[in-house]
Write a protein that binds this DNA or RNA. Structure first.
Lengths: 239, 239
DNA sequence: TATTTTTGGATTGTTAACAATCTGTGTTAT
DNA sequence: ATAACACAGATTGTTAACAATCCAAAAATA
């Protein structure tokens, strides 16, 4: 079983009557968000079409979409690889997150229903549980999930979509550069953010979120040199 | 000659050794930005592959990319259409622009070189010229071009990319809902923005840009009802 | 006449075979 | 022993033929 197969194995293979391309794209995005697929991994067309029991054309289409999302790098005649953001990319991505989540956050303060706040709190509980059990993969996934959920509460699909892209890339960055300790969202920062939203205090919420993002970014250690490259990503130097 | 062919005719058909898919994508994006292609227009695969003298597979790939950019809506078994943003989409898009351009603008104040400022001023001159001649298509294109150029000066490729997407959709929106008069960026707003950047005054620049975007948005008239739909876009109601 | 059904053409979706390119291995020559 | 070269397997890129679906106009029915 290839590494890619392992990473994507326990996925959305239940048919669910959704278009095939969507299933492939979402499976790969999930795997990246959960850090089961790491930066630089090659996504071979054969491997994927075997995995999803489909035509290479479908895989090709899916890879084109992922390339447009900037989550996959496509090198002509060489193939598709999970993107490996450079340290500069990382800084740009986190600046973009601050710009976008700032507004998402204010929207959330204005528009959150009681149901939304309940959902957020229930998510917090899940995060705490995962951390309590020392279940790191789940903690990583839920940590991103909190931000995505907040995006939904903000009710601006354009901003949500960008945020999902950016958190995806943040997962790659953390996988590449995260120091072994720390790095995960301190969940009490999430909790205090929900408090501020419930209190309908936009300025506090915005400030908390901004600090939170700076903490995450600060927790990243840009080794002075190249990213910890495993064979494949050597090829991936951005032009 | 089909309407699509007319819109894309005078385009980047010079080969330029760039990958074919890129040429198709960029041609269509340019045509949308210039409002030669209007919302709801069908992008038939045959028509495009004839136009670009290429395989349908290439067209398909290009359309997948444009769909990922949210500039094209893909309806299964029916085809690809230039997206028709709803009034709610428009509000979301302009809010996103404010969130993003705010930061781009501060970046520009911090990082603009003398060359950058010269470029901006030269762009302003072109805008003035186009308006003076009453050349509306050129004025529309250059008006968007100013914002895109500002994005480049900000030197955050992530934000620039989102801005390019958003200004593209803004072109569609303006094409759909713009009242006949007004609506174009008042170029003196652009000019004053450049002044603020040259004066290295981030707060003034940010304020000017925010107001500028609100003016554009205010100039849009959301007819209470459906967008001015020409046959095809009737099919395009978002799910 | 108005509504439904049928039917033909056109368009999109799918598949498989073929061509071009790359990667790694093994050989040869210096 | 090292470097350049050549070959074979594997991977990506391209193309064309075929199948399924949709759309619009004509025919049939009420």
């Amino acid at each position: 079983m290839t590494p890619v197969a392992q990473a994507l194995a326990a996925c959305n293979l239940g048919d669910m009557d959704k278009p095939l391309e969507t299933i492939i794209v979402d499976s790969i995005l999930d795997a990246i968000a959960d850090q089961r697929l790491r930066a630089g991994t090659k996504l071979g067309e054969q491997a994927l079409s075997d995995l999803f029991r489909c035509n290479r054309a479908h895989v090709r289409r899916a890879l084109a979409t992922l390339t447009a999302y900037r989550v996959v790098d496509h090198l002509p005649n060489r193939g598709a690889f999970v993107a490996t953001p450079t340290p500069q990319d990382a800084r740009d991505i986190f600046q973009a997150r601050r710009a976008i989540e700032r507004v998402i956050c204010r929207n959330a303060v204005n528009q959150a229903t009681e149901q939304d706040i309940a959902d957020l709190r229930s998510h917090l509980a899940q995060e705490a549980a995962a951390k309590g059990q020392g279940n790191r993969p789940a903690a990583v996934r839920l940590s991103r999930g909190f931000h995505v959920l907040l995006g939904r509460v903000g009710r601006n699909p354009v901003l949500s979509r960008y945020l999902e892209e950016l958190t995806m890339q943040s997962s790659l960055i953390i996988g590449l550069y995260a120091s072994a300790h720390g790095t995960l969202c301190a969940e009490d920062e999430h909790a205090r953010l929900v408090d501020a939203i419930e209190a309908r205090d936009p300025d506090a919420a915005q400030r908390l979120l901004d600090e939170h993002l700076r903490h995450i970014e600060a927790g990243i250690e840009f080794g002075d040199e190249a990213p910890p490259t495993d064979m494949l990503s050597a090829v991936l130097k951005r032009s």
